[in-house]
């Protein structure tokens, strides 16, 4: 289990990285944290001719929080983003990503680009309506909304020669609570199913909008907009989810689980929204 041969490039700045990437095209692969790419190399499931190692691009090791949301640079690792504590849902999602040691190295943007249908971060981005910024040499960067970014299992809108430079997680409106629930076989494994929820209350502390994203139940994160009808969470998810069975769980169980987790996530998010509304009112 050793990687196949490749040319290793270690660009010093973004411009150089984009140049190299443009030259490599479909034969190139970007290495950031490597926690998904290197296993694939070791198993020889991926055999890029060029590996463009962006670990020297400190300009991409950024976590910027503003009133509109959080922008996470391509080299910001899970542990660092979690420590920054800049977004409740991002924090909740990151706690569920693999194990602490993996989180020391893996990057948030890398996880989004990897687009595993059972991964937490794509769902967080999707439920929040965030976006990924893609850059290429000689062109203006383009922002791709989550809804368009995840195109299939392990597939994204990233084109050959492009580098995902950052991801934007929109800030939560007032009176909003979030939650991420999942069931995995072992602690830290990819989820059998998981649901994250964002719930916003109106002035009378009734649910004005509830939005869910489910993982492990389809090729891409499944976003379900419940509007105010948050009590339908379980049914709404079960109506739309189309999970597959595998060695760990049947499709029927996953569908059942997604419903249970949807209800739990929404309930938890409602509770947190009420708490937050109270704190906001007090402030």
């Amino acid at each position: 289990m050793k990687p196949p041969p490749f040319s290793h490039h270690a660009p010093r700045d973004l411009g150089e990285a984009l140049e190299v990437l443009a030259g490599a095209g479909p034969r190139g692969k970007v290495l950031a944290g490597g926690q998904s790419l290197i296993p694939m190399l070791n198993m020889r499931l991926a055999a890029p001719e060029h590996v463009i190692d962006i670990n020297r691009l400190e300009e991409l090791d950024t976590v910027e929080a503003g009133p509109d949301g959080v922008t996470v640079g391509a080299l910001a690792r899970h542990a660092r983003v979690a420590r920054a504590g800049v977004h409740p849902l991002l924090g909740q999602a990151l706690r569920l990503v693999a194990h602490p040691v993996i989180r020391n190295r893996g990057t948030v943007v890398g996880s989004l680009v990897h687009a595993d249908p059972a991964a937490e971060l794509p769902a967080a981005l999707a439920v929040l309506g965030g976006s990924v910024r893609l850059a290429r040499a000689g062109a203006a960067p383009r922002d791709v909304a989550a809804a368009e970014f995840f195109t299939g299992p392990m597939e994204s809108a990233l084109r050959p020669g492009e580098l995902a430079v950052s991801a934007r997680f929109p800030a939560l409106p007032p009176r909003t609570g979030t939650a991420f629930t999942e069931v995995s076989r072992r602690h830290g494994d990819y989820a059998l199913a998981g649901v994250c929820a964002v719930v916003t209350l109106d002035d009378d502390l009734r649910v004005a909008s509830a939005r869910l994203a489910c993982i492990g139940v389809g090729p891409v994160p499944l976003v379900v907009d419940l509007g105010a009808d948050w009590k339908r969470a379980a049914d709404a998810v079960r109506e739309r989810a189309e999970p597959d069975g595998d060695v760990h769980a049947t499709a029927a169980y996953r569908l059942h689980l997604a419903g249970v987790l949807a209800r739990r996530a929404v309930e938890q998010a409602v509770e947190r929204a009420i708490g937050r509304a109270a704190r906001e009112a007090a402030a």
């Binding site: 290793h8 926690q35 020391n104 190295r105």
Partner: peptide, 21 residues
């Protein structure tokens, strides 16, 4: 996790890290 080493004090998987990186 057998290959875990400390990189600038933080534990990382040495099997998921290129030496050149």
């Amino acid at each position: 996790g057998c290959c875990t080493v400390l990189l600038d004090g933080e534990p990382v998987r040495s099997c998921l890290t290129l030496a050149v990186t």
